[in-house]
């Protein structure tokens, strides 16, 4: 019994240890990729809290990612903030956006919830285009390398970038590992499985869903801010529908409602696209094929299938 309940903790630290050590082994190109993967995995984990654990399918998370990104980018270039407070502005903007959208969108459910979140995100994207004088629209803007320094460390260096991404990932990963096994996370799962029953047991399910939405939005915003900070580019592409669909794909690929699933999903998809774009310019064809095959043969995603067949304890 104790062995079983210790297994999830061992897995969490094992994953972090592996990621930390990988930097020493990997060539620079793949280390750069892995830094990107970790930041995107943070986005996917934020999405997973809402989709995988609470059972709410949002198609508007690009808005929160972009809120984090523009919050950081605009406050650095416009107000001249240094990275750390700018990061806080980014996360704050995403939190605020998710609170407002959550408050409105949670009045609906099912397909309507999907469409409402999609509409709000689309409006967000159009707002970015409308204020093109500041945001530079589709073209986007670059955050100068000289500004991307924390305590004298240049974040665009290979090692600094890798470990900043690693720290961001580790904090979110550990936080979520704790959260989904805490009473709050358990309640979210109860809502996913049967909302009426959770309501009957006396839980204010709307309040829980709103909180899940805010936490999810804040984590997505942190990913967006981190992405802008580490890779130095802010653009409206990241607010498009495609960037709302990506986290859904990653999470489904890796396994919705599993802790490790988002990382696995982003990793798989990233390299799938990386390899196939070397072969053809229509690389999304491979992604499409992968999606169809997955839904046919592994509907629970990689981690989900693992949990079903081998490790029942996977959190």
């Amino acid at each position: 019994m104790t062995g079983k309940s210790r297994a999830p903790n061992l897995m969490v630290f094992g994953v972090l240890l592996c990621l930390g050590l990988l930097f020493l082994v990997l060539p620079a190109y793949h280390a750069g990729n892995l830094a990107r993967i970790m930041v995107l995995a943070v986005y996917a984990m934020g999405y997973n809290l809402l989709f995988g654990y609470t059972g709410l399918l949002s198609l508007g998370h690009a808005m929160f990612f972009a809120a984090g990104m523009y919050g950081l980018g605009l406050s650095m270039t416009g107000w001249g903030l240094s990275p750390v407070p700018a990061f806080a502005v980014g996360v704050g903007a995403a939190t605020l956006a998710s609170a407002i959208i959550g408050f409105l969108a949670l009045r609906t459910r099912g397909v309507a919830f999907m469409i409402v979140t999609l509409m709000f995100a689309q409006a967000g994207y159009l707002v970015i285009l409308y204020f093109g004088a500041y945001t530079r629209g589709d073209e986007g803007f670059v955050i100068q390398q000289a500004d991307r320094m924390i305590a004298g460390i240049d974040l665009s260096g290979d090692a600094a970038r890798y470990f900043t991404a690693f720290i961001l990932f580790a904090v979110c990963f550990l936080g979520l590992a704790w959260l989904v096994r805490a009473p709050f996370g358990r309640t979210l799962i109860a809502i996913r499985e049967n909302e009426e029953r959770a309501q009957m047991l006396g839980y204010d399910t709307t309040m829980y869903k709103l909180r899940a939405m805010i936490v999810s939005g804040a984590i997505s915003g942190a990913a967006g801010a981190g992405y802008a900070l580490l890779f130095g580019y802010v653009g409206a592409t990241f607010a498009t529908v495609q960037y709302s669909i990506f986290p859904l794909l990653w999470v489904l690929l890796g396994g919705a409602g599993t802790l490790i699933g988002p990382l696995v999903g982003v990793f798989f998809m990233f390299y799938l696209i990386d390899i196939s774009s070397a072969v053809t310019s229509a690389y999304m064809l491979i992604a499409g094929l992968a999606l169809v095959l997955l839904t046919l043969f592994a509907p629970q995603g990689f981690a989900g299938e693992l949990r079903k067949r081998v490790f029942a304890w996977l959190p």
Binding site: I245, L248, L249, L252, M284, L285, A287, G288, L289, A290, L291, V292, L294, T295, L296
Partner: peptide, 8 residues
Amino acid sequence: VATIGLLY
């Protein structure tokens, strides 16, 4: 998900 795949 399958129809998103089909889309691509």
